[in-house]
Design a protein around this nucleic acid. Sequence first.
DNA 1: GTTGAACAGTTGTTGAACAACTGATAGCGT
DNA 2: ACGCTATCAGTTGTTCAACAACTGTTCAAC
Lengths: 228, 228
Amino acid sequence: MISAPHAESNVGRGASALRRRILAGEVRPGGPLREVALAAELGVSRNTLREILLMLAAEGLVQHVPHHGARVVQLGVRDARDIYLVRQVIESAAIERAASRPLQAAEYLSAAIERLEDAAGAHDLDRLVEADLGFHRSLAAVLESDRLTALFHTIETQLRLAFSIVAFADREYEQPAPLVDEHRRLQKVITGGDVDRAKEALLDHLAKYETRLIAVLREQERGVHEAP
Amino acid sequence: MISAPHAESNVGRGASALRRRILAGEVRPGGPLREVALAAELGVSRNTLREILLMLAAEGLVQHVPHHGARVVQLGVRDARDIYLVRQVIESAAIERAASRPLQAAEYLSAAIERLEDAAGAHDLDRLVEADLGFHRSLAAVLESDRLTALFHTIETQLRLAFSIVAFADREYEQPAPLVDEHRRLQKVITGGDVDRAKEALLDHLAKYETRLIAVLREQERGVHEAP
DNA sequence: GTTGAACAGTTGTTGAACAACTGATAGCGT
DNA sequence: ACGCTATCAGTTGTTCAACAACTGTTCAAC
């Protein structure tokens, strides 16, 4: 019964590898993912690669167009609005629930804040983005809903994809102090118990990032339109 | 440019067929889906069948266990709680949004009510279940969020799966009049504009069905436990 | 009775092959 | 120059047959 540590399957490994590549920007959003070439690069057969692409499609990293294969998802303004609407819905609900289980919420969020402070101290941009997302993931986790957590995960992935482009264009992350402060304020008002005020603070916070992301995406869309 | 009506792909057709079979109860929840046999029955190759299974897994109809293949999802009490939590979150959010676009909400919901009345008049149980779900789908549609709509769709599918078993055990649907009335009341209070009262009515409604579903699932789980 | 080794059934994965579709190119007629 | 269509190369969709890897079971040996 010493069940060997289950070397992950090829599609699992391949999916991780491709996910990493895409998030690293090795294939630009909208760019095609050719089956034969990718299969060779990942060292798997084409059939296996197709399964990998299906998985990443379910994760929202990849888009399937019939007879044109898979493309890396390219977020548009419409997607950004949708994503932030979902975040409003999920995270607001989490705030409501946090009010009825304050100790657990406080624990989750303070741990997240610590990670944010560490990342800010290390001047590591990737870790900072990660910790920012992590804070909100912890908030969503208060709901203890597998399905909402899964949805939040796909959204997180898509945001990471967007950030991998946006981060350079956004000065905010270069001055991490106010970002940490703002999340700390969020934490306090959420664990404070005043649901309405907490929700309001959250919506403000999200709206700020939404408009910022949309601005960059608009710029990008215009660029695509201008340069054929 | 007369682009022929795109005969659906094999995996699309196969997925529809298998979905229909599962929802028709031809494979009982928890039952295994053997690749070779199924591929033969659906008239596709095993590779294609695997893609089909991945799609249904993304839809939440099928569950993948490494080296044991796919099983029809078997909802447990925990799933039922989660599903109804998600419905609370999504439909409550929809009610809030409905307040700011009352004409559209009224239109969607009244159409849904009409379908419910038709189904009730026809004494068709399947159509009644469908119309019940349709009412709530219309409510969720007010959010106009692709991602939340998609999540709601997977939940709807899982509920259909559960109902295909539960409906027989539940007398409620045999007397459709109160069911229609309750939804009509919901419609009125939602389009009425009093968000808090509407939410309260919704939560009551959902809680009723949740406890009913959980009761049946518990019964079922006990049955499984007793009869090896 | 426990251990362990062979076994049959199933999933995981591969490679090659062909069909079907798409977009682009080149040629034709006007 | 313009529009049509025939062809073509590249890509995806799908199949097939085979083998490797894993699982639960059966059966024999101790």
